[in-house]
Each structure stands twice: as C-alpha cells, then as structure tokens.
Amino acid sequence: MNRIDNMFAKCRAEGRKALIMFVSAGDPSLAFTRRLVPALVEAGADLIELGVPFSDPMADGPTIQAASERALAGGANLEGILEMAEGLRRDCPETPMVLFSYYNVVLQYGVERLAAASARLGIDGWLLVDVPPEEEGEVVPILEQHGLVKISLLAPTTPPERMAEILRRAKGFVYYITVAGVTGARLELPEDLAEHLAAVRERSPVPVAAGFGVSSPEQARMVGGQADGVIVGSRLINVIQEAADEEGALQKARELVRSLAAALAE
C-alpha cells in the first residue's frame, strides 16, 4: 500500500472525508511554502498537491494565475521545488504529496528524470492538467516503472462511456472537476453536482475527490457528502494573500484548514 491508499483507508476507518489542499509552490517564496505545508498538515490536511507554476496556466482562474506569476517572479522552479519536497517529506512522513502542473514544465525537466527524482524524494504521483488519457502513453509507463501514479481527471462534460474507460485506468484517486470552468473560489456549485458525484463514486475503483470552486466549510461539507475527499486551492491562496505578514498567513491558513477538516469530519 502506498501513502495515497493508506491515507484514504485511514480516513474511511475514521469515518471522515479526506481534505486535499492545493499549494502554489513558491508563492511568494519557496521558504514560505516550506513552512506552509507542515502547518497545513498539522492543522488537518490529508494530502498536499504541490502546484508547480507555469507561465500559461490555461485551466486556472485569476487566483492561481496570479499566484503562479508571483511564484515565477520569486524564482520558483522545479529544481527548487524538489529540493523543498525532500524537506517536507522528512517533516511529514505519512502525508501523500502529488506534483500538480502543466506538461511543458515536466517535459523540459525530462519525464524520466523527474519520475526518478519524484520516487527518490517521496512524491507519490503527478497530476498533469493538460495530459488527457489520449496523450498519457508517453508518461504513465514511466511513472509506473518508478512506482508512481498519474491522477486522472473527470469533468462534468465527460460522457459515461469515456468516464468508464478513465475509471478503468484510475490509480490513487480520481479528481472530479465540479464545474465546467477554470479553478477559483465560487459562491455556488452546480445543482446536479451531488447526482454526478454519486454516479462517479458508484463506478470508481479508487476514491473520488472533488475540487474546483470549493471554498467554504459549508461547500466542503456538501461536496464531501458525496465524495471521498475534497480539494481546496484558490481559497487558501486568497487567505494567504489577505494576511499582513507570513506569521499571519500561516495562522490564517491553519484556521482555514481546521474549519474545512472539521466540516469533513461531521
């Protein structure tokens, strides 16, 4: 059993839903992210998505776009993020970590080279936003050789037959995109979300986590009611941005995670 499977099994045993936090690595500095992640884990985050910034984040809304720009302006790159991840793994030995990025960043580093480094440093998988199943042949066999998983995405637009094929291949967990749109905190989620999630969960061989647009504990509770995990990203970035200084940001981040984790434990 790997860290991802262990974590979901543990959550199930404890009768709660997993809280997955997306972190924009290097926003505003890698030193801050290095402090932020252990704080999130301590406050109750079950899995960390380490967002590797890309200059052209086509699937992201304004919040993560701006965070990526700040991270790049602060000098964040994959080498630095991997170095940081090594320290995070020491501090948080049990928490699964997934690299979250766009394919070009991975391609330039080298798929094989990054897979080897990921395995060595204790990264559990990758989520590549712009590598759909049609193109994953150049990535998945290499990941598998290194014992890593590629997290699959499902969207509200994915038709049932295609969904079945994606679920057949799924490893780790499946990321269900709650809204047809880009990332970002939203006041309202689609009315038929619960229905869609229930249909996915019924067919999925692996846990289903839902994200895009989830920001409040109330939304997390609602989405968590039909999923095995909930993913929150933009809201965390906003909370950090609104704080006056780093200490304040860490404090606000902890409070956010605690409130989300509490909502998912009910």
């Binding site: 086509m58 699937a59 394919y103 936003v129 712009d130 590598v131 759909p132 199943p133 049609e134 193109e135 042949g137 995405l153 499902l154 969207a155 509200p156 637009t157 994915t158 049932p160 037959e161 295609r162 969904m163 079945a164 094929e165 994606i166 995109i177 047809a180 749109g181």
Partner: peptide, 21 residues
C-alpha cells in the same frame, strides 16, 4: 468509450494536450 491511440500527430508533434473538460 474507447480512448484511441494518439491521432492528429505529425511525427512527434501535434496531439491534444488539453484539460479533460
């Protein structure tokens, strides 16, 4: 439901590198 092998490729170029949505 069949997800087909890469088409729309020109040698190693082209493809469909987009989000699932």
């Amino acid at each position: 439901g069949q997800i087909e092998q890469p088409i729309g490729h020109y040698g190693p170029y082209g493809g469909r590198y987009v989000a699932e949505t």
